[in-house]
Amino acid sequence: MGDSALRADHLTKRYGRLTALDDLTLEVTAGEVFGFLGPNGAGKSTTIRLLLGLARPTAGRAWVFGIDAADVARAHRLLAHVPADVALWPHLTGAEILHLQARTGSGVDLAYRDELVQRFELDPSKPAGTYSTGNRQKVALIAAFATRAPLLVLDEPTSGLDPLMEREFRTAVATARARGQAVFLSSHQLAEVEAVCDRVAILRAGRLVQVASLPELRDLHRSEVTLTYTGSPPALAEVSGVGAVESAGEGHVRFTLTGSPAPVLQALAAADITALVVREPSLEEIFLDYYGAADVR
């Protein structure tokens, strides 16, 4: 583990009686791509507003490379941000907005910025008032990726992009990581997180429910196992890690497996197994596992 790029310590935000974010503690390491997953209204944007010092926490604190997040003049030297809903000055053209962001920021790689304008196929000569949602998002993304800031805080940055542009986005994240920049990527798009992130945090109803690397996340979750056997069905009811045993027709049994497969393999040694199929859960199923069932609130 290197330096921490972003650290939240018991971060809490209440709006009157509504608790938008409850006791969030997490750390993003310098150079890693960190996914921040959650459904709409889980508190992702609230968290980002607190990390950027745009809102004050009710309790707890946050640091950007060790600098108090409330000290925005210093903390923001080290980060670039793309908001969830990008609003631009309608009379300024894309080029003028990029220029303004570059001049008010802490350093931009102009050659790379021009390359990004090409890659994202943005026409920077148009006034921002004529841009679609996706084009507004591109302006903010180009401005952020072109900085040399060691941390990029992106709030659902691809919600308005088409699949081709999404691919460019993933390339840009990979380039950022190669340059040593950390990326904090809030999203509800699993495929995106799965494609680019090293670690993932899952937020639900304002509470952090899990932080794990992608392989760890899968390990924590149930694989679905289907057995084909001859003779009497294997005895699985008491085996640790096994759940939801059900018959899948004559000579077939299906069950879920959590954690290490060793106990079940031992139990199966006695049975006459003719086929075994293990299906890994998709991130989507993991996601639904966490907050698809009952709503906490």
Binding site: L54, A73, H76, P83, A87, T104, G105
Partner: peptide, 20 residues
């Protein structure tokens, strides 16, 4: 109005103190 409709957000995320 610029703050409320989000136009100020990109500038607020720059290294510029709020009083400034």
């Amino acid at each position: 109005a610029a703050e409320t409709d989000g136009r100020l957000t990109l500038l607020s995320a720059q290294p510029i103190s709020r009083p400034r």
